[in-house]
Nucleic acid binder design. Structure first.
Lengths: 233, 233
DNA sequence: CAATTGTCAAGAGCAGTGCTCTCTGTTCGG
DNA sequence: CCGAACAGAGAGCACTGCTCTTGACAATTG
């Protein structure tokens, strides 16, 4: 039993190989886009294609692993950036840290971003685990709002919400990590979140290319507009 | 010379074939996602694969044609819906028509939406013509704002814009169809546009699935939030 | 009207894909 | 130390986009 827990040499070798496969897969993702070729990955590793199937049951399985890693990496990047804001009462600063780190990570990992937030792969049905991990980034933002509400420094908007919308929001507010965010504020948060990733997608997918030139300034401005909509000063 | 202009039987047959190819390609797009197979399309048409190359130089060319058609179709759907609002001074009504028709079209043409607004195809570089057509839907929204400004019924926001952002916006405001929209309002419009398509993408790509249940009510609410941000009453 | 020219589809073939199956070595663990 | 678990190789299937050559047909011209 103890041996099972301490990684045996074989298990270690296996874990290493899995990591190597994922790494080269990420490289190919960056080079050739989402049309990831298992054979090409195997070739790069000096291994025949069928060998890869010892580690991943299918190409989709490999993609799922990359997606999970992606959400984790992005989530961690955002959590770290947000955690480095020393004045925890500086809600605006914390929000800006979230926004910028989300965009920075996306720009630095464009193919992975496309995998996470782009069009879903055709036959591919996202496993339960992925949609769980997907909430990790947004949770950071929710904590900022909850902190503000708890401290009384963040005004809860008095928006009128239609019945059906309110019912959904009340349920969503019960998700782990979303506690302490009242429905009206949550509604605004979800709007802002759509706007944040809409903006990132527009920029990454080239939809602003023949308009905006100073992307950083434009994004900063957008972030501040969102902040004002959330009531962050 | 006259014969050249009136479609000769051959040119007619050719145009028909092109249309048939695009139609079946759209069907396959709907069934199997963006992994469009030229061979499968040819099979459906009872034709060998190489024959398709008489009409489209490559698979990418066929995709480009579908993308162009997609923007045109979506643009037309939005223009029609917006045009059917009889009280032209009802800016909010016109905006709601734009938003709803954009979402309706997207829901009814999910694979095409993914092609237009999802992650870009890897090796595929969007030709100039596509990014031109891509502005057709947004132009409709701009006209609403310009009409409001011209009539004096829409207040121009007095937002403070950073220098670099303002410079970009002034240039963008000069695009054909964007005339009469002052920079501060344009900034808000672009935010809202990102939010609109962020919301549609979130819904279509399943990112709201384990939260929202009444998608229509949620979207309507979002649209009204956006409208308020634009100053539409 | 006949000949030529342009167009079309077919078929073979190339290089690549995901994936399965069988076979041979190697290495670990009781 | 030996049986079992494991890793990789290789062949093969059905598929993909794309190219090139060949033969048939129709349209336009002399």
């Amino acid at each position: 039993m103890a041996q099972r827990l301490t990684t045996s040499p074989r298990a270690q070798a296996r874990a290493d190989m899995i990591e190597r496969i994922k790494d080269t897969a990420r490289e190919h993702l960056a080079a050739d886009g989402p049309n990831l070729s298992l054979r090409a990955v195997a070739r790069d590793l000096g291994v025949v294609s069928s060998a890869v199937y010892r580690y991943f049951a299918s190409r989709d399985d490999l993609l799922t692993a990359l997606i999970l890693d992606g959400y984790a990496a992005m989530g961690e990047a955002i959590e770290t950036a947000e955690g480095e804001v020393s004045r925890r009462t500086d809600l605006l600063g914390r929000w800006l840290a979230v926004g910028w780190s989300a965009r920075d990570w996306s720009l630095d990992h464009q193919p992975e971003y496309a995998l996470l937030y782009g069009s879903p792969v055709p036959g591919y049905a996202a496993p339960e685990a992925t949609i769980e991990q997907a909430q990790r980034p947004v949770t950071v933002a929710m904590r900022i709002l909850a902190d503000g509400v708890a401290a009384g420094t963040l005004e809860v908007p008095a928006d009128r919400l239609p019945r059906a919308v309110r019912a959904d929001l009340v349920r969503i507010a019960g998700f782990p990590g979303f506690e302490g965010v009242p429905p009206t504020l949550l509604a605004r948060a979800m709007s802002v979140w759509a706007q944040l990733f809409g903006s990132i997608s527009f920029e990454l997918f080239g939809r602003l290319k023949n308009g905006v030139t100073d992307f950083d300034a434009y994004f900063e401005h957008q972030l501040r507009v969102m902040a004002r909509h959330l009531g962050l000063t």
